[in-house]
Design a protein around this nucleic acid. Structure first.
Lengths: 158, 158
DNA sequence: TGAGGGTGAGGCGGTCGGGCTGCATCGTTG
DNA sequence: CAACGATGCAGCCCGACCGCCTCACCCTCA
């Protein structure tokens, strides 16, 4: 699933709870602890996006499988974000090194061919990446349309 | 504190507990969970190194201040190690990029000066880092001499 | 050399708080 | 009015920690 709807709140709390396999009250608690921040409708109803549900599933995985508590989940989420950031930077760095090697060969070749022994300015190599390209900002706000469906609650917990 | 003694077990459990501000039973529990692995003497007595104590203090910080449980501590320690590794690799990468830039200038200059237009082999640039340099292996094993001192237990917890 | 104190190892149970769920109450909507 | 969401409160379960017990080993001393 991709598209602008991924970060727009569309699920009411019962739907988000069903999708993430959690109790609605648990979702409210997570919000109170700052672990998740669903949008709110004009009538103060929580609206969970697909990204919110994904985050909830990630939290569910950490708490259920990993046995982490909420403080641990918070810390781990931050650290994982840092790891992703550094990994992306490393990839960019590697790519930049390879590019530099190519340019180096090309430059040497050019200088070799040139009878006029003129140096080229190396400031041209300052690609200055600094990070992966940011995605475009989301679409302008349209009034969200919450999903209201019939939910049959199954026995939770185990 | 540095030196070969940092990774050699010298503290008995009561001393390590006092230094880390924990209950001896807690230290045994940590070992049972794989959070810490002190050495053992020939008589099966736990011997904690200074590095062990530092790790215990780090755990103490995470559990007491951060409120993490042991599963969270385990995950966070692994992630932090990964972050440190990646950070070191990034530094090496940056250093390598700078070095490459210097060599590039030098090579171009050399080619420019050279009347014979002969290419230099670029395989010479394959530094092939792959990671930070490993530290030297520890000193050969000398029989550990446990520290036995009189301990006055204060009221823990709080 | 045998007795006693001190300490560590390992196991068991109690205590306290975090995390989760159930329930009650009220507002909103179709 | 039936269904659902928001909020607050109370109870339950388990993880984390600590105290205590027993046994084994080391050191000291008569």
């Amino acid at each position: 699933m991709s598209g602008p709807g991924r970060i727009r709140g569309v699920f009411m709390i019962s739907v988000a709870a069903e999708l993430s396999g959690m109790h609605p009250q648990t979702l409210r608690m997570y919000e109170a602890r700052g672990l998740i921040t669903p949008q709110r409708s004009a009538k103060n109803t929580r609206l969970y996006s697909q990204a919110d549900v994904d985050r909830l599933l990630r939290i569910q995985e950490m708490t259920a499988d990993g046995g982490l508590n909420l403080a641990g989940v918070e810390t781990v989420l931050e650290l994982e974000a840092e790891v992703r950031r550094m990994s992306a930077e490393l990839d960019a760095m590697r790519e930049r090194a390879a590019e530099m090697e190519r340019r180096m060969a090309a430059e040497v070749e050019r200088v070799r061919r040139s009878s006029r022994a003129e140096m080229v300015p190396y400031g041209a190599y300052e690609a200055r990446g600094g990070g992966p390209p940011r995605p475009a900002p989301p679409a302008p706000p349209k009034p969200p349309q919450p999903v209201r469906i019939k939910i049959v609650r199954k026995h939770h917990g185990g």
